[in-house]
Computed example of a mutant assay.
Amino acid sequence: MKCKVQLIGRLGSEPEITSLGNGAQVATLSIATEEYWKDKQGNAQRRTTWHRAKFWAEGTIGYIQRNLTKGQLVEVEGGFRYEEYTDREGVKNKVPVINGTNIMPLSFPDNSPPEGQPGNGSGEDDYIPY
């Protein structure tokens, strides 16, 4: 069985590119999604949910570095998993993380197309307009 996640949201901060001890890199994105509805009294309501996505493919990380900035609308696909960490008080916690496999910008900061193909991990630099 497989768990697949697809979300559309805005980048809440600049992408964070981290180098690991083994020479590999990881791109971490903070993404906000919003839901809108009316409550029983007819008042407009909004809920923002924050998500963390990590990308491991070298070509996709390069694409993210060159083309994505805070505030952009993006579509992210990937798997779902939990990461465990220990807080300052020594308590173990689990946080949900999207293990990103594809990313597609849906808005551009300067109304120009991005460099390279949207991040599918291929590393190819051919832009295909959709």
Rank of each mutant, 00 (worst) to 15 (best):
I31K: 02
Q41W: 05
G59P: 04
K94R: 15
I103G: 00
P96W: 11
W37M: 10
S30F: 01
T60N: 01
I61D: 02
F80C: 11
Q41D: 15
I103N: 01
W50D: 10
D110R: 13
R47Y: 08
V74K: 01
V76K: 01
N99T: 15
T33F: 14
L29I: 05
G71C: 00
L11P: 00
K70F: 02
V97R: 11
E34F: 12
P109Q: 08
P114E: 12
K92D: 08
Y36W: 13
G62D: 13
Q25S: 09
G116S: 14
N43S: 05
W56L: 08
G78S: 09
V91W: 12
W50K: 10
G71I: 00
P15G: 02
R52V: 13
V74N: 00
F55L: 07
F108G: 00
G78D: 03
P113F: 10
A32Q: 08
M104S: 13
F55N: 06
S19G: 08
P113I: 06
G62H: 10
G42A: 08
P118F: 14
R66W: 04
N67S: 10
G71K: 02
N93C: 05
P114R: 12
T28L: 07
V76W: 01
T86S: 04
T28P: 03
Y82A: 11
P96V: 08
F80P: 03
N67Y: 09
S107R: 04
P96R: 05
K70I: 05
N22G: 08
R88M: 04
V74Q: 01
F80T: 04
A44C: 03
P15V: 00
V76R: 01
P118G: 06
A44E: 13
L29H: 03
H51N: 07
K92M: 05
Q65M: 07
N22C: 07
T69W: 00
